[in-house]
Computed example of a mutant assay.
Amino acid sequence: MFLSNQTTKNQGKYLSQDPSDPSRYLDGTRAYVQGSMWDGFADGKGDFTDGPYEIQHPESFFKNSFYKYGFNPEVGSVGVPVAATIRATMPPEGWSIPIFKKGIDGYIEEVPNPIWDYHKYIPYSKPGKVHDQIELYGHPKDLDDFCEKAQLINYVQYRALLEGWTSFMWTKFTGVLIWKTQNPWTGLRGQFYDHLQDQTAGFYGCRCAAEPIHVQLNLASYNIEVLSAT
């Protein structure tokens, strides 16, 4: 391949410019955002200021201190699917539910089996901060019971997440993106429908909170709020 002197000069000109924003010299007619945490998203500096991705007290989503920036590009929570999905996608060794280890402080640590751990299971407890939310509905007896109770928590978590955000919309927040709506594999964390495309209850919690005209209870202040998403 032969290059003209003019082509070589142009390549040198491009390479000499700051490569952090290629739109300046490759196009120049459209906006370029380096990533999901730059230019108006999260802290806008590219730092990892998104999230969180773990179980929360439902009322925490309604507190002003929950998230400090206007637009959160990634936030998620728990996401165990129904028992049928686990049986269809994992060997029998993966059908055992987590071991519930209660500490002297009263908090429970969930210890998942190795297969759940490999599939990035997010526990329904956070020792020292959040008491086990599964236990609120009674100690699970088996996989079916655990997954059924997990759906109740999935619903509450994602409904509270979006209700908390819309409670501050346009006064503090400008937007939020859920991470993530679905898993590309048989993951056991934030998802609205699983690998077999069966909805988790988080989907219905989100759908409820995102309805065009929504009446909700602010779980931090106990005020009744009427919100319009139209």
Rank of each mutant, 00 (worst) to 15 (best):
T49A: 14
Y14P: 05
S125F: 07
G12R: 09
R87P: 07
S77N: 12
F2N: 04
M169H: 12
S221R: 00
I153E: 02
M1Q: 15
N64F: 02
W165S: 02
E225Q: 12
S36P: 08
D39G: 11
D144G: 10
S125A: 07
L143A: 06
A160E: 05
V78H: 02
M169L: 10
F168E: 01
Y25I: 03
F61H: 06
A84R: 05
Q197N: 15
A229Y: 08
F100T: 01
P19G: 06
K9E: 14
M169S: 03
L188P: 14
D105N: 13
M90L: 03
T186P: 01
Y121K: 07
W185T: 09
S65D: 08
H214E: 03
L26R: 11
W185A: 09
S4L: 04
Y193W: 10
F71V: 12
V130G: 03
S4P: 00
L161Y: 07
G205E: 00
Y69L: 05
N183K: 02
G187P: 01
S4K: 07
Q151I: 10
Q197V: 15
D145K: 03
A210G: 03
K63E: 13
Q199E: 08
S125E: 04
K45G: 02
G40S: 04
K68V: 09
A210R: 01
K102H: 05
S23K: 15
G46A: 12
P212R: 00
E109R: 14
Y69M: 02
T49P: 09
F192I: 03
L152H: 11
Y32L: 08
T171V: 14
V75M: 12
L219E: 07
Y14T: 10
D50L: 07
Q133C: 09
F71K: 13
W165K: 10
G138A: 12
V111G: 02
I108G: 06
K13F: 07
N223V: 08
Y32G: 08
K13H: 04
K9V: 15
I213M: 08
A160L: 05
Y53W: 15
H131S: 09
N218M: 01
Y118N: 06
S228H: 05
I115G: 03
A220S: 15
D18A: 11
F173K: 04
P212L: 03
G70T: 09
R30W: 06
I97Q: 08
K13P: 01
Q216P: 06
Y53D: 11
G175K: 14
P127D: 13
N183V: 02
L219W: 01
F168Y: 15
